[in-house]
Design a protein around this nucleic acid. Structure first.
Lengths: 207, 207, 207, 207
DNA sequence: TATGAATGAGCCTTCATTCAT
DNA sequence: CATGAATGAAGGCTCATTCAT
């Protein structure tokens, strides 16, 4: 409440701004809770009522913010993909190809570790055909755009088959993450990361 | 009809062997049907009655062969893992490390293409935490054993960090497959395969 | 603005009359909106929030004027029944029995055409046992009083069985309306009206 | 079980015929129960679980026989309309117009009294716009065909405006039924019936 | 007086599983 | 060994109603 607040009277309706704020916060809370549970228990394993309880709200409230459970998932996916896109945008501006690759590896794992639930969801959605198409499309577009970026990078670096090169690089990142998430703390993530960077730093590419 | 089915006479009750044969065939049919549907629609998206209908049997019969849907999944996974283990066993007997790696890449993709439903299930189960633990354990053991084998291979080849090396090689295989299954026919699988083999054939390893 | 809204001064608090006026108007608006929707979508098919939105007010406000959805329905029904009662009162004062019947037929259809939503609600409520008892009681009393009036009319006209005669006349009116509302524009309402009047005008009654 | 029964063994599956019989009986039971409750409490007021409990079966069983609650309603309506159609077919074969009308009145009320729940449903569905379209269409077709039949009858009897005449006759029947169902035992149904027949028996039509 | 976010009971529906035959 | 009718718990979703502002 600041001095501009013109709405102090006890029985006046809240202002538009107040409502917007409340809405934004509730939406956020619900999405957060849902992401957590989708990651931990899978889309089907996380019921709407569980999500609500976990978020500390009533079951019905979700439907005030999302048309359906499907819609909730899609919102989460879209939001996540957008966030990552922003991260990645920063990396693409790095001039030196060598450094750019190294930074990409670093950043990818850093993001992944910071936002494991989202990546869990990523693999979850990718591999489950009975999940909302919208969510899959978002990821599909994300992957395509990643590959396009990588391809340009490898082309720029003068690789003979930049497309295949991009696919392999992408496979390493996703593959490592996948195994890491499945295996857990026993996975030697640091060493693997180091080795990847090393492989991609000698001259232009692994030979 | 194999040698075990020596039919005594038309009016004799079925022999133990005949029963066993019928059982084995029914089990097989059901597992086949389930694998198909699990792959196409996901574990939750494939109902028991769908599986039964697809297999041409009654719902009840399934419970004659499998304690539960969970049990059915576990049986499929175990069987699949075993089959692959046999394939891989053959490869490990190849003397020349170079050739062994090339063969491993070749074989992996060949198997994958021949048995897409199973690999679809593989990723499906790996990334869905609300699936029967037993199935996940089977895959977990499979992965561990794969990594152990790869590690030995790279150690033998004199790599400085065989563990990380194995992880990366495994990541490439799984990553490529994952992307291939998600993206579909637009994926340049042949070129990627060639590049992988190339990378791993020069001297002992990519540098 | 009618004579009641004599505004004292711009800065004076609103007078009691002004408040009452606002209340009356809001009540009216909400009832109007609800009647429309009840008619178009049925009692259960029209949600409170739909009604509020359609009336241009908030959900909460409705509960300021009506204790519940049930209460709202009852208010609408009571109001409608009262209005019709007034119309009908005028007719009863017509001296000539012949003319009175003709006028009754004319008026009934005229009112019905002018206020279709209300008559839709009328039939709706009559035939839906799970609707608020209060609403049904209002209609019940209305029907009883209609029948009483008709009975007196036919008795006065010297019919042998005025009660049955009243029931049949009432049945014709309600039956025609019911069919008209269900069938819509294909219904030959004018011809039917003419024939009814004709039947009831020759001598005292149809024979 | 008769002598033809070839299926006495304890653990043989039921024959096709046995299953058909079971199915037919369950379907019937559920439809009966639903009709009762739809009539007594309205479509919305009768929940699927209530219907199931009333039928003495589990909630889920309904979905073994009907795609949805909507589908159940439509099945009931179609079945009812067909049954009435058969009744009415008999009447249309009566030669003498006078007698035919009398019989039609008699029969209509007889059927109605014998099958009140269905007629309750009839009015219920007719006047509730938020009910499955399929059910309404069935009734719509039924009404149309009734009117067509009546029109032919009145045309044959040489009435000047058979269409309007049919509408009025139909209105009387539906109107009386409607009021009878709403008012209950206080309604002088017998006298009304007598008067209707009387009105329509003098010469060809009421005058 | 007016707002709309929040609640939670209750509804329709699905589906793994059981069981009489 | 084989059938499919029957069960009932659980899930997604709607909506009348309340309440803080």
């Amino acid at each position: 409440m600041n001095v501009h607040s013109i709405n102090k009277s006890k029985d006046m309706p809240r202002t538009r701004e107040q409502f917007d704020e409340i809405r934004a916060k509730s939406r956020e809370t619900i999405m957060q809770s849902a992401l957590e549970l989708f990651a931990r228990r899978g889309y089907h394993g996380a019921s709407v009522s569980m999500i609500a309880k976990n978020a500390g709200v009533s079951t019905g409230l979700m439907y005030n913010y999302f048309k359906s459970k499907t819609d909730l998932l899609e919102a989460i996916v879209k939001h996540g993909v957008m966030t990552i896109g922003e991260y990645m945008g920063d990396i693409e501006s790095i001039e030196d190809p060598q450094e750019r690759i190294a930074e990409m590896v670093e950043k990818t794992f850093q993001i992944a570790l910071e936002d494991m639930p989202f990546w869990s969801l990523y693999f979850n959605v990718m591999m489950q055909p009975d999940l909302p198409e919208g969510a899959q499309r978002s990821f599909s577009e994300f992957i395509q755009s990643m590959f396009t970026g990588l391809e340009m990078m490898f082309a720029e670096a003068g690789m003979p088959d930049p497309e295949a090169e991009a696919k392999i690089f992408g496979a390493i990142l996703d593959g490592v993450l996948l195994h890491y998430m499945f295996i857990g703390k026993d996975y030697p993530l640091e060493n693997v990361k180091k080795l990847i960077i090393e492989k991609y730093s000698d001259r232009q590419s692994p030979k």
